[in-house]
Nucleic acid binder design. Structure first.
Lengths: 394, 394
DNA sequence: TTTATTTAGTTTAAGAGTTAAATTAAATAA
DNA sequence: TTATTTAATTTAACTCTTAAACTAAATAAA
């Protein structure tokens, strides 16, 4: 936290302490002023004046007193999640999902749209969808505090430009600029794995963990979102985490990325379906969900296919563990629904192949937000900015 | 920067600004007060009072005036590198290197020692060597500000404990505690790849870069040191960067880590020597340096062996690039001396295998500090703590 | 040679923020 | 009814930054 080629002044102090108080209320609320003072080590007087300000700005509400053994009763404070709203968008290939959430990331409205493969049309459809979402936003003190967009592709996070989305045929699309000009609302654009991991780490399966990895396994490929020390890691040009094209078999078949034996050639949903067909003669290839349903019903070919894919996922994840030594790995995508059929083979492969793997030190869990991970995460990016950067916002 | 479960107060402001001024002088010196004021955006008055304090504490010296077109001449300020000294230690398997550097990381004294494989003896030899180094430290204002130790093994950086060093047969050795008790000097313990990358990023081949990877290729194996946003990344338990055991050939031969087809099985110095022997019938297997000398002299078997090893290094580095998207990769170890013989195959393999690789966006360079990388880096860890953490030090 | 102008650096008074101590508020125990 | 306890606010002191005024020391112009 705390970037801004930083000089210290009274203003900075104020922001630091205001954020500290605000986030204690957000995370530990309901909480009293005195507890905040003890936890934050700020003076009671400071806490009182901060709280006064936060109440005036509608971020915080008093929710009454609470019984105590003796002495004056403390007044409990709570974060006012409905003080403002955020629009979150997942811009995928062929479809997009738009949601409206409050400041606690509770989903208030959602809708999915099929979209074009033409740049101009996509932008048009995006604008229309944002307009529709805006009409769904309730009245609130702060209104819409921002728009977050998670895109399947490489994004320059600073400029908010979609550098390239090979599958969608998009290139150098200044999304942030376009959306901000159209709406006048501050907008953040990021890769969908990054928004997903922000969402999971702020409110989801990785809450409270410092180092976490989100593994995204979809038809568009494999990618990871990386959170280090509570911050998303994007690399120099925004393509950190493109681990789907990590070599796990250097003499393997050629991938259309140019490399050989890429991880995602063995572990994608397509590979799962291929594995399944290998063991079971079948006309129309089933979807991932159907294979999972078959496994749950005891179908051996399905179980074998899921196990095998889980092992391949585990091989790559062993590399991930050796590289990042994370506290938690969150799995997103249809396959996460396979639960034990896929998680157990992953865990077994990790313990076989990863010298330092300790199952007690690392959780491997499915995403909490499922299909909405990327869009909720995109909204969380706005919330995160709002509550963890020391810039004056109101 | 700026951790400390942080509440803001006047003291924090002061520390932030003091460090800011100090580091501008360290990095841009010789520099005048007025330039510092412009660059830092701190008020002239603030800068003056900071500088006064820094001069009183001997960190900074005035080195006279400089000509100017008109008006009063500015007084130039310089960082006083000899204000204090640091002891840096590389604790390897069978040997250790001890150095004394000043606050600019200039080496003032160095010595290597063969060491035992017995824990008690190693600690004893370490203490003796530290005593010897202390006698070599010149008089200075601050004296010895700290001791840094880079160890080949997994380290708990917070407690300064060597968790495990498989090759050295050490386990749960509370090095920080032992050395601090013996010397009374603040001590930092870290993995040798981590200290190396700190050194290179502070004063060496990665100076000024935010995201960098140090690749260490030695007889002890392959490992990487990771710097993200200017900070070392160690993971939850300190084994982040154990990428030597990354699978690059999932059906390859078994490694003694339990995995198959680990990167370091193909790219280690031993593998280089093996490759060389394959092409050249020879009695006593030559050392890496000798193979490099042969290549320089035009020996084809040597060139082939180096090329092949470079290609294997490149396969793993393609994974590293896809994972971290770094600005620079620094190579440490004997092989780095092979220069073009190994760097060119690496670059070629990267462009073949890494979709997003752009040779203009990523430097692949040998370590600046060579054999001393780990020990200088260990010392830099102390210096880094001294100049970039907002704790009162004097 | 004197005066004006320019640039560097210091001094001063004001302002913003935190905090310890004193005070007020509101409860229970004696 | 009084004493005690705990929560929260008010007050006065203190630190640090800053804008503005001022001093220092140079060159340019008259």
């Amino acid at each position: 936290m705390l970037k801004r080629e930083m000089t210290g002044d009274a203003d900075l102090i104020k922001q630091i302490n205001l954020m500290l108080v605000m986030n204690l209320i957000r995370e530990k609320g309901p909480i009293s002023r005195i507890e905040i003072s003890k936890m934050s080590k700020l003076n009671k007087a400071t806490v009182s004046s901060m709280v006064e300000e936060l109440i005036a700005k509608r971020y915080v509400v008093e929710i009454g007193e609470v019984k105590s053994k003796r002495g004056r009763r403390p007044t409990l404070l709570n974060f006012n999640g409905d003080a403002g709203y955020v629009i979150g968008i997942e811009l995928n290939v062929g479809f997009m999902t738009v949601i409206v959430v409050n400041l606690n990331a509770s989903v208030h409205w959602k809708k999915s749209y099929l979209i074009s493969d033409n740049e101009k049309e996509i932008v048009d459809q995006l604008f229309k969808a944002i307009d529709e979402a805006r009409t769904a936003v309730p009245q609130s003190a702060l209104g819409i505090i921002g728009i977050g967009i998670g895109v399947v592709g490489i994004v320059n996070h600073e400029t908010g430009t979609l550098v390239i989305a090979p599958n969608a045929g998009l290139q150098n699309l200044p999304l942030k600029h376009l959306v901000e000009s159209y709406t006048g609302i501050q907008t953040f654009v990021d890769n969908d794995c990054n928004t997903s991991v922000i969402g999971e780490s702020t409110f989801g399966a990785g809450k409270g963990r410092n180092h976490q990895i989100l593994l995204s396994v979809t038809n568009r490929g494999i990618g990871v979102g990386i959170v280090i020390d509570g911050k998303v890691f994007r690399g120099q040009d925004g393509f950190a985490g493109e681990m789907g094209h990590m070599t796990i078999n250097m003499e393997g078949p050629r991938c259309n990325c140019g490399n050989r034996g890429c991880w995602e050639m063995y572990s994608s949903p397509q590979a799962l379906i291929r594995n399944f067909k290998k063991n079971k003669n079948i006309e129309t290839p089933p979807k991932v969900d159907e294979i999972i349903a078959l496994a749950n019903a005891g179908d051996n070919a399905a179980i074998t296919a899921l196990t095998e894919t889980g092992e391949y996922l585990g091989i790559g994840l062993a590399n991930v563990v050796n590289t990042f030594n994370p506290e938690v790995i969150i799995i997103r995508g249809d396959m996460a629904k396979a639960d034990k059929w896929i998680l157990n083979p992953i865990r077994r492969t990790l313990s076989e192949r990863c010298y330092f793997y300790a199952s007690t030190r690392i959780d491997i869990v499915p995403s909490r937000f499922g299909e909405l991970a990327a869009s909720i995460g995109a909204a969380c990016e706005v919330i995160h900015y709002w509550f963890y950067s020391y810039e004056q916002k109101l």
